[in-house]
Design a protein around this nucleic acid. Sequence first.
RNA 1: GCAGAUGUGGUGGAAUGGCAGACACGAUGGACUCAAAAUCCAUUGUAGAAAUACGUGUGGGUUCAAGUCCCAUCAUCUGCACCA
Length: 802
Amino acid sequence: MSYNHEKIDKKWQDLWDEKKSFKVVIDKTKPKFYALVEFPYPSGQGLHVGHPRSYTALDIISRKRRLEGFNVLYPMGWDAFGLPTENFAIKNNIHPSIVTKTNISNFKKQLKSLGISFDWEREIDTTDPKYYRWTQWIFIQLFNHGLAYKKEMNVNWCPSCRVVLANEEVVSGNCERCSEGVIRKIKSQWMLKITDYADRLIDDIDSVDYIDRVKVSQKNWIGRSYGAEINFTTNVDFDLQIYTTKPETIFGVTYMVIAPEHDFIIKHKDNIKNIDDVIKYIEKSKCKSDFDRVEMIKEKTGIILEGVYACNPLNNNKIPIYISDYVLITFGSGAVMAVPAHDQRDFEFAKKFGLEAIQVIDTLVNDKNSAILSNNDSDCLINSEFLNGLNILDSRSKILSFIEDKNIGRAKTNYRLRDWIFSRQRYWGEPIPIVFCEECGYQAIDEKDLPLKLPNLDNFKPTDSGESPLSNISEFVNTNCPKCFGLAKRETDTMPQWAGSSWYFLRYCDVDNEDQIASKESIDYFMPVDWYNGGMEHTTLHVLYSRFWHKFLYDIGIVTTKEPYLKRTSHGMILGENGEKMSKSRGNVVNPDIIISKYGSDTMRLYEMFIGDFEKSAPWSSDSIKGCRRFLERIWNFQNILIEGEYFRENLKIIFNKTIKKVTEDIENLKFNTAIAVMMSLINNIYETKSINKYEYKTLLVLLNPFAPHITEELNEICFKNNLYIYQFKWPIFDINKCIDSNIEIALQINGKIKNKIDINIEDDEENIIKIAKEKLAEYLDSRHIIKEIYIKNRLVNIVVK
RNA sequence: GCAGAUGUGGUGGAAUGGCAGACACGAUGGACUCAAAAUCCAUUGUAGAAAUACGUGUGGGUUCAAGUCCCAUCAUCUGCACCA
């Protein structure tokens, strides 16, 4: 009987469905394990070979955990709101809800054909009103706690999608979704005050087990810096407040630069003599996005404000004021004190405009072509009056207490992180549950009226004005104020796609709950997520946003853990055969359906894991996958050479124990590729004996089951007829004492170069081994002087000679 | 420019400072076959008939011993908001 993957895959997938084999309920007699993978956006293209990498990896973990006695929650759902669906719907004139339904059913079919052990009873869909009711509920809580507010923002505007993008969604100055150029536009936006949580988002990251790259990216994104705010007076009635991380260099200030958007310019335009030129410069910089400003690294631009000047509060020196777009209004106070001697950007700007530089830190490094960047805290200050002779750290604390005493400034912590722009002027998103009343202002709708359903529009295209399509529907817009019951208008903006994915892991705990996000009991039992895996591209934003919401929900008593995810790992991308990123336009996309129908889902799963280091990207190879299929066929054919036996045979005892140990450990360390390699080695060894006994075969099937669940279940049924499924078995354990061979080969070296090898017994003592080694190496030792003899246990002998 | 990562056979990739190239693909030769496919066996880092020599981007260093640690350098990839 040959290995018929089509029949076998279907048989077991149907059986798991029918028996609800992976359904999980609260069971306090067992330890729980919550495995989570990022739920997909169900795009029209269907599943991509990249998706299964993450799902298979945590499926292996989940299946192994079940065998180890855990009660495993491994759920799946759909992050289904979003622009591509809306754009597809517009283009093809089909309602986005229908597009979504079709895409989900296609994705689901494809996922099922992979045999992942999801609990499909807990499937969620972010576009389902039963789900987004609670997304809206969380927004109301944020609003009631002052964390959601409206603000006029200079926002990124995509003329093509006609939608405002968060900074995070702008890639290289272009829209992340449609790749069109992004311009700047003023718009009143709902904002979420994520900055209130900046410290906790940084500090708590040390309490969780995230891979370092993720921790670093979270910290860098928040970007906490310690510095000072200092007020500089001016010759007009206005104090310019600057932010600096190096307050001790204040005696080196020779000019000041403010952002083009700074209030000072408009307020004192009558005092600025060259105001016409200044306005021209401002207009020019308005067209640039922040990204363009970044790109302008070659040359600094700027213009002096004539007729106004600032005073250095420390020595009353008059200093000129410039505007330049390298200073951003969104960071610090939108004004910097320029110290060209010790800051590279200031140095370049000063060079271009012929401005003076005063050196205030004495350091050995001295390069005339760049600023003097001192990294040494013990360097001392010069040209700085009362700071002279103090090192950097001492002078910093002295200047801080000085400015605080004189009330001209104070220590200040700053963050790179900005508040989260939360509005979208689009149709296919959760309506924001707020109304505007002339009398009462912005009011959250009554929680009893949730969900606020997205009206079923015929015309869901964005309006050219940039308002949401919902603004055209008077039945939706016109309503009553929940407070005074007078006439009021609904908010017509919708939420960004990030919203639904910021709390979905909570809903999985209790998907059908109609009274709350999830029951307290289910949250207490399943949360936190024990292991969360997803793409590298989400390690900054999605992880940060969902941690923020979780911390807020902690503060209002909904969840009981400060962090949502105990452990976060990320997988590398699967590239096309040509080593480039898979994409439709490159024509190198591999469709998993074709692979599965040709080789079967177990081969597909195995190859996804064998392809390379899980955390690194790897190119797909349609040749290499054959090796995985051959491996499974050999295991299949073992049923023909099956013999009786209740223990490992003596000559295979060591290798079996070693393999169990390695596979057990490698799975935990995301080293799926070497786990598979060691099983391949094992079967090569078994092959040499021309037989396999029942105990050995059963052990092998359990070990392989998390990787290749269909074929292993089938073989178990054929060969053992024990009325038990493998998923009900126990994970094999190894005997640490039987993991080392008694006879091993060690290397013999002369001065670190391999010259020979010998077999030793691990019981042999060192003295004896060195003696044998020297006999073996006699020809090299002849008449030479031995300086040192090194023996590394079970590894090698190295004789150092002269 | 900044930050992070990566450089190992023809290919994907293995190697707690201790025998570089596990495992797999591909290739070559052989068995089976009328033939092909599949399967099985053997070989496969480079040079060399061999002994041997050389080999982990490049140049130094530490060490009895370096793919691995340190310094410098080059190349590639990813992210970015000139973060003061």
